[in-house]
Design a protein around this nucleic acid. Sequence first.
RNA 1: GCCUCAUUAGCUCAGUUGGUUAGAGCGGCGGACUGUUAAUCCGUAGGUCCAAGGUUCAAGUCCUUGAUGAGGCGCCA
Length: 482
Amino acid sequence: MKRIKIAEILRTEPVNSEVVVKGWVKAFRNNQFIALNDGSCAQNLQVVVDFENTDPGLIERIKFGAAIGARGLLVESQGKGQTVEVKAAEITVYGDCNPEEFPLQPKKQTLEYLREIAHLRFRTNTFGALFRVRHALAFAIHKFFNDRGFCYLHTPVITASDAEGAGEMFRVTTLPLENVPLTERGEIDFSLDFFERPTNLTVSGQLEAELGALALGEVYTFGPTFRAENSNTTRHLAEFWMIEPEVAFADLGDNMDLAEAMLQSVIGYVLEHCAADLKILEDRLIEEEKTKPQDQRSDMSLTEKLRFVVDNSFERLTYTEAIDILKNSNPNKKGKFQYPIDGWGADLQSEHERYLVEKHFKKPVILTNYPAAIKAFYMRRDEPNESVPGPTVSAMDILFPGIGEIVGGSQREERLEVLQQKMQEMHIPEKELYWYLDTRRFGTCPHAGFGLGFERLVLFVSGMGNIRDVIAFPRYPGSAEF
RNA sequence: GCCUCAUUAGCUCAGUUGGUUAGAGCGGCGGACUGUUAAUCCGUAGGUCCAAGGUUCAAGUCCUUGAUGAGGCGCCA
């Protein structure tokens, strides 16, 4: 008989038909009631064992964590906690689970401990819910772009350019590290390397996405990116997934509209389709908040926070306006900021972004038109504005409560001469990026795009506290287990 | 990379001012019960108090160094 998934069973009425279910034992109560979970949904299915007529040796093997199958009648439940249950006529044990050795237990275990056993943490309620939500978000992102006619572009993971300027890169090589071949001048002889040139893992697919956008019109990437920064925070990973749409004939306003619509759409999708999993994550967050002092607790539940983001438009303001607000803010006047705001031009610190998002506006914020000096070379230079102290670019960052920067984007510099001048000023070799400049030489047009850190989105939507807990096998300094 | 905090049973945690034999809950094991919802009840085993060195009559507790983990900052998505 064919196995039926528990998610499907819970959608059907009890029909007194025979079913076969397979999964892992979450609890075995009273020698009678198995809570069975097969990963298809958050809910367990109750399997009732006729313990008086079942081999005691078999009952012995029904332990927390064991993989079992059950065949029997699907009936209306006599108990209170569930509507249907399976009256087992036959139980099969596929994989025993020795409780003395199994590291998981049916009780609260810390996320730090579970991170050490990341190969098993999928089996907990929290991580089961988390990875189903993560999947739903990924699917919703593809759906959003597909519905709008975007083309999914696969940009390379291995790249020869190190000029993207997004951070330290991981070198890719097949040269023997113990005996690196040198040229006559004593430099590493990359002509003997696999690609016959220095190569790295990509830090961004943006430049390649721009190439696609200037022909396909609207493209997006969704793939792994790598940063070799020694970052030790709850918001950084060495390997993470990034979504990077790029749109031809779009300006900064279109870019902001797209990003806001996308975030609201995918969060709305999860609210609609992952209620049971969100409930598990919300309850986890409530428990975690109980351990915090009263004033640090959130006044909104997880789903309320998500609903709020979906229902309210993001606050849009320029960097210059933000500086004014911060300069006149209470914490700045009272010297509460570790980095006081004393002028125009410096990059904002986390404490400043947090003040704007969590205290001043109390909603997601889009900051735009940053000083040109603190932003990347490819961002479009703004027309001079007398009310602004210095040159700015058409950049935008979206800041989320608790997460900080979740999106970074810009309108791109489409004017060849301006771009070349910027590259010269920032010491970016034109020769290496000839292919990028070609798009400006041949049929250039205004265009814009952004990068969304997928794990930061999952972090926000799941209410988890550490980005290392929203990706299956996190990579960060000193850690590449599994 | 910098700063702060933590490390006690399989897990989650107590452990007073430095003072005799380091405790609890869950989990394990043995038993009872049998429509339970983290089932319940009775019994029971389980510890190199992260490591090394030091102070002291006496160290889980104080000091130094190291390891590991967490949080904050910077870099950013």
